[in-house]
Design a protein around this nucleic acid. Structure first.
Length: 477
RNA sequence: CGGGGCGUGGCGCAGUCCGGCUAGCGCGCUUGCAUGGGGUGCAAGAGGUCGGAGGUUCAAAUCCUCUCGCCCCGACCA
């Protein structure tokens, strides 16, 4: 691994992104184009994301299950929009056990169809509803252009699939899960997101309405970080998910689906990282605190190690690591752990021991700015609030960055300029033509219409016709 | 699918145009000594036969033919 400096974010953001991931050992390229290996450090982050989400899913009444990887090709074809949306990116198995298969099997790109099929078997009565199931798994989409974490042929995610008796209930569920994602993003990942509704052209293939949380990355491009879909009765009709209501009349269910993937790791990296490497939010960081001992002879070593013991005794409540490597210098370790984004570093050298303190270095404040000392016996009582402060500082900084790069263009020319380095928040008439024009002219797309809309109405920034809603235009990943 | 580029120790590259000694260099790796509060220094080592197949030649990383793979831009997709 090279010890050269990273490319800076301003000189080459995507190269910075690729290198940070590999140097921090989050992920590596697999032998198959477009596939990645999530390395232990990256997976540990994903596990923390999983826990934070799973806890919220359980708290809102959901249970986990596991559905198969293979889906009969015919299932995908049952919902028109769905098959049109996914056909180009399907991986299909045509041979099994050396024999050509009667019916090709699709490697799931998402599981609405097979879960819909099972729901039609399981749901008979209004008493069976709602069904609130989530699954953690992997899916495959044969993408043309791939990026580590952001878009790979195979990725890991969770997909929730629910069935309800009424449209109102299903819509409520869709929004509830959108709020769960928002809460997770803001409070666990310190990623400020804008929850909102997708336009017709941007919505999920087969959905009635799609909702999204949109995040602004460090280069101001937008990233769809999680989605929640109201599927209406589209899949219920395609898969005959019907129940008898209390009046003994047969009704179609109303279904939802919602997902958040390992792409969110990309969101964390591009939201918080700096030119030194990753910066991970304390609540999700695989290692929250790293301890680096400093000494230059046996006498100093024993003195420092005694203090380290004292430190470690106070750190048991946090995910921590004592870096005892002897083959690298303290300076190397500082850079190494900064690359990996560990939010808090504790340095202990002879001078600290003599003064009865440790030196703290906050990752998000580079160099001397982030350093301070703390009496060694105050660690256990102070560390918790220090990590909370770092968590809050990351959210605050990311929110300010985002808000500083959102503009309200006065006219179309201004919009075209804004989306080159920011987001435009504009009145929009809602027509696909205006969306297409913006995309054609600037590569920017509508990201979402936020749930809390400003009062009143205006005129479309593109065509000037009356507009009732404001939408974010941005270039997206 | 269109345009461009690249395959040489683990990684990054030079050498290829104009065939010719034991295929080099940097990083990483191993060992030793020194060093150790911001990417440590010196020394000694290990490790490739040049993407694959075929051909030309006394001689091929280098020339020719075929082939496989990857990357970038565009299209497409999210």
């Amino acid at each position: 691994m090279s010890t050269d400096k990273l490319p800076t974010r301003s000189e080459n953001f995507s190269e910075w992104y690729n290198q940070v991931i590999q140097r921090a050992e989050m992920a590596d390229y697999a032998p198959v184009r477009g596939c990645m290996v999530v390395r232990p450090y990256g997976w540990a982050l994903w596990e923390n994301i999983q826990q934070a989400l799973d806890k919220r899913f359980k708290a809102t009444g959901h249970v986990n299950a596991a559905f198969p990887l293979f889906i009969p090709m015919s299932f995908l074809e049952k919902e028109k929009q769905h098959v049109e949306g996914f056909s180009p990116e399907l991986a299909v198995v045509t041979i099994g056990g050396g024999e050509k298969l009667e019916e090709p099997l699709v490697v799931r790109p998402t599981s609405e169809t097979i879960i819909g099929y099972m729901y039609s078997k399981w749901i008979k009565s209004y008493r069976d509803l709602p069904v609130l199931i989530n699954q953690w798994g992997n899916v495959v989409r044969w993408e043309m252009r791939t990026r580590l974490f952001l878009r790979t042929l195979e990725f890991y995610w969770q997909e929730g699939h629910t069935a309800h008796a009424t449209a109102e209930e299903a819509v409520e569920e869709t929004v509830r899960m959108l709020n769960v994602y928002t809460d997770f993003a803001v409070n666990e990942a310190a990623v400020p997101v804008i929850p909102g509704k997708k336009s017709e052209t941007e919505k999920f293939a087969g959905a009635v309405d799609s909702y999204t949380i949109e995040a602004m990355m460090g280069d101001t491009r937008a990233l769809q970080a999680g989605t929640s879909h109201f599927l209406g009765q589209n899949f219920a009709r395609a898969f005959d998910i019907q129940y008898l209501d209390p009046n003994n009349s047969l009704q179609y269910c109303w279904t939802t689906s919602w997902g958040l993937s390992t792409r969110f790791i990309g969101a964390i990296i591009m939201t918080h990282g700096d030119d030194q490497g990753l910066i991970l939010p304390p609540r999700l960081a695989p290692i929250q605190i790293v301890v680096v001992p400093i000494y230059k002879n046996d006498q100093e070593q024993s003195k420092v190690f005694a203090a380290i013991q004292q430190v470690e005794n106070q750190l048991s409540a946090w995910r921590h690591k004592i870096d005892l490597r002897t083959e690298v210098t303290p300076g190397f370790k500082f850079n190494d752990w900064e690359m990996r984004g560990v939010p808090l570093r504790i340095e202990i050298g002879p001078k600290d021991v003599d003064n009865g303190v440790v030196t703290l270095a906050r990752r998000h404040l580079p160099g001397k700015a982030g350093k301070s000392t703390l009496p060694i016996d105050q660690l256990s009582t102070r560390i918790g609030s220090i990590l909370d402060e770092i968590q809050a500082a990351l959210l605050e900084r990311a929110t300010r960055f985002r808000d500083d790069h959102i503009y309200d263009p006065k006219n179309y020319d201004e919009l075209k300029e804004i989306v080159q380095n920011g987001w435009a928040f504009s009145w929009w008439c809602g027509s696909a033509e205006c969306e297409a024009k913006v995309k054609e002219d600037t590569k920017a797309t509508t990201r979402c219409m936020p749930l809390d809309q400003p009062e009143g109405n205006g005129s479309c920034v593109v065509c000037g016709k009356p507009a009732r809603r404001k939408v974010y235009f941005a270039r997206a990943y």
